[in-house]
Amino acid sequence: MVPISAQSAQPAVLVEELVAGYGGTPALTGLDFVAAPGERVALLGPNGGGKTTLIRTLQGDLTPISGTFTLRGIVGHVPQKSSGRNDWPVTALDVAICGTLDALPWWRVPGKAQRRAAREALEAVGLGERSSTPYGELSGGQQRRTQVAAALAGGASVLLLDEPFAGLDAVAADRLEKLLATLADSGTTLLIATHDLDQARSWEKVLCLNGEQLAFGPPEAVLTRQTLEATFGSDLLEIPGGGFMAPPHHHHDH
């Protein structure tokens, strides 16, 4: 891995005056932010606030309505919880190998090199011993880490994670959190959609979204009562003894 200091001159993610949405209707306006290599950026916002829209735009699924964005290196995407067919006879290794396809021309199929990259990626996410376990038999946290491994196997240096912690128990969430920290240390840039303010607080940057970009910056600057109320509305719960909690998360399958 290249040392962070050598890269920090150039941003890994650069978004300028971006307006994004479906079919020409803006769902998200005024996006303007920069992330350096090795930074974890929390995407905070209510359901429908535009987190998934932003991820899908950066991923290239949606064409920006206006504005530009630049991503340095290969982008990997870890989709929402419900994706991934549990009923297909597929091993964790197969899933990780799938992540290498983006880099291959259409007539190539994954070969030895891709297989090795996939194994390494599974090792990196701590699933080296699970590589021949059927995907459907993995736990939720393991499935999520397999998805991360697929992105890493594709050589991603920017990871877009859509609600990776949704539905995980405390142990699994903790493991994933640690994995993300390790990845950030090794120079991977992570954009993570989340509801958990405490997590966001421990990361490098926070981006608040609710139909528009409300705030961007280090957590201590952004996570103020004022910004959070603008982001989540007045539903924000104040926790006795300091701190806030975002309204309970309702998961929707899309």
Binding site: D94, C98, P110
Partner: peptide, 12 residues
């Protein structure tokens, strides 16, 4: 095959 697989498993 690998492409159909990645559509099912990774949502590509």
């Amino acid at each position: 095959g690998p492409r159909w697989l990645s559509e099912g498993m990774l949502g590509r």
